[in-house]
Design a protein around this nucleic acid. Structure first.
Length: 511
RNA sequence: GGUCCGUUCGUCUAGGGGUUAGGACACCAGAUUUUCAUUCUGGUAACACGGGUUCGAUUCCCGUACGGACUACCA
């Protein structure tokens, strides 16, 4: 068996779509598992759609996701260059080869002429595509024109394209690793443009030439390519590369969470989740998009989630590290049907991965957030807070969002808790407790608790009755981590001052 | 319209000629947590439909329906 060489081949027309990340991932998993090579090829043959920065964005996104590239524009490699715009001469050369072997021809038709053809076909009620084995005989091309006329036209500098001459009435059989045998008759295929009038190849030519030249063993790509795969097979045949043709695997699509259809940026925006791995500012429209990274998703969680969208190991294990995925992955276990994108599942994975982080790792997130808020905090205190918050959050930013009270005296208090729990007993206990704490010389969670119990015992009021009131007085919230630990972290002085503040501000609530 | 691909709980899916059709997310309930979250336990919930083949089909075959992709000098 030949070496496994796979490629991820995005075109730099914007940010990398999340579906693209999954395609890259599957390629990467196969490569790593088989000790093969992962290639990143930039398919920038459409100059009109080129977006500056997109290429860098793609590479940064893959870096973040942990998808490592072995050969590519940045890494180099034995088959460089890896940017198609820099391989122009190769496509020219190969197109010439097809021309001389009779598998391709020049076509001089203008846009208007093609449009007219389309109209005629439509009027005739034909299902046939615009440029085919029957219609090419009535168009202006090197098949209908004499050699002299063709040469004259070529020399005159008029626009022309090179089209593939689809064989007549032949059944093309494709053996897809995921879908099995897919066959189509060539009468259904049209004479696709191979070389555009600007001298650039189309995807079809470039992809086949490059995959062959780069010795790609497996083409793993989205299902949207399935309809043109037979054309690619025909191209391999025309070049005489049939025996070196890569294996194909067409991945099921990622579908929108509700309704039907391919997952789009619109859907993501509408449902309020990211579609791109990293933040992206569209240089053309100026539109800003928030990425998975910036939304607080951990790369390992996203990867785990994505891996399971269309693939599963056949066991009941759900949590897989990249290494485990590499070991367990197989193309055979990729499903055929499209997978709806369920962001809730992604959140669950994130939560799972977040709690495997050490307090130290989590503290880094918190400290970073605090810096933005201009709040200083020691490493030790941050770690203590993280230990307390870890099991209660899904995203790292919630360390701050749900833990603001560790750093800021609450200015408002949860109304429903106040209404239900702020009563005479609570005021009595909290007043006495505040005074008792004030007299303390040492203070920690244990002492805080002991002191509280003494106070409630002497007032003959159940601790449980007033705990919620104490919590809302200290944090402003009705829920949260262990109250005694909160007090330990904010410290004695802060406890006293918060209680004083609450007592003063909530007094009027007592009925 | 045409071509191709697909269809198991709401979602991701396992399974496969005879199963109580399994798991996970989500949802609901109970327990624990004197709060909230976590955790634990339990629960609701699926083989698109119609014909075959077969002793038997959700599983194999053929249709139908539905859905999707493609149908550019875009990838």
């Amino acid at each position: 068996m030949k070496d496994v060489r796979v490629r991820f081949a995005p075109s730099p027309t914007g940010a990398l779509h999340i579906g693209g990340v999954r395609t890259a991932l599957y390629n990467f998993l196969l490569a790593r598992q088989q000790g093969g090579t992962m290639i990143l090829r930039i398919e920038d043959t459409d100059q009109n759609r080129y977006v500056p920065g997109a290429e860098e964005y793609i590479m940064e996104s893959l870096d973040w996701a942990g998808i490592k590239i072995d050969e590519g524009v940045r890494e180099g490699g034995p088959y460089a260059p890896y940017r198609q715009s820099e391989r122009k001469h190769l496509y020219q050369q190969h197109a010439q080869q097809l021309l001389s072997s009779g598998h391709a021809y020049y076509a001089f038709d203008t846009e208007q002429e093609i449009e007219a053809l389309r109209e005629r076909q439509k009027a005739a009620g034909s299902d046939q595509q615009q440029y085919s084995s029957v219609t090419r005989t009535v168009m202006r091309n090197s098949l209908t024109l004499s050699a002299e006329e063709t040469k004259k036209l070529l020399d005159s500098g008029v626009n022309y394209v090179i089209r593939f001459k689809i064989p007549e009435n032949e059944t093309v059989v494709l053996n897809d690793l995921i879908r099995g045998e897919v066959s189509v008759n060539t009468t259904q295929l049209d004479d696709k443009v191979l070389m555009k009038s600007d001298g650039m190849p189309t995807y079809h030519l470039a992809n086949v030439v490059d995959d062959y030249l780069m010795k790609i063993s497996h083409v793993i790509r989205g299902e949207e390519w399935l309809p043109s795969a037979p054309l690619h097979v025909l191209l391999y045949k025309a070049f005489g590369w049939e025996k070196d043709m890569p294996r194909f695997a067409h991945l099921p699509l990622l579908l929108k969470p509700d309704g039907n259809g391919k997952l789009s940026k619109r859907d993501a925006d509408r449902m309020g989740f990211p579609i791109f791995p990293l933040n992206w500012a569209d240089p053309k429209t100026g539109e800003q998009s928030t990425g998975y990274k910036e939304s607080g998703y951990l790369p390992e969680a996203l990867i785990n989630f994505l891996a399971f969208l269309g693939w599963n190991p056949g066991t009941e294990q759900e949590i897989f590290s990249m290494d485990e995925l590499i070991r367990a992955f197989s193309i055979e276990r990729i499903g055929k049907a499209g997978a709806k994108f369920d962001i809730q599942k992604a959140q669950w994975f994130n939560q799972q991965y977040l709690r495997t982080k050490t307090n130290q790792e989590l503290a880094a997130f918190l400290l970073e957030q605090l810096k933005l808020e201009n709040i200083s905090c020691t490493q030790e205190k941050a770690e203590k807070i993280c230990a307390l918050m870890k099991e209660r959050i899904t995203f790292p930013q919630e360390l701050w969002e749900h833990g603001k009270f560790f750093f800021r005296t609450p200015e408002s208090f949860d109304e429903s808790v106040v209404t239900k729990k702020w009563n005479d007993d609570a005021v009595k206990v909290i007043t006495a407790y505040r005074d008792a704490v004030e007299r303390l010389s040492a203070f920690d969670a244990g002492i805080a608790k002991e002191t509280l119990e003494q106070v409630t015992a002497s007032l003959q009021i159940g601790t449980g009755k007033i705990l919620q009131a104490l919590r809302v007085a200290l944090s402003g919230l009705g829920g949260g981590p262990d109250l005694m630990m909160i007090m330990e972290i904010i410290g004695k002085d802060e406890v006293v001052s918060r209680l004083t503040f609450a007592l003063k501000n909530l007094k009027q609530k007592v009925s």
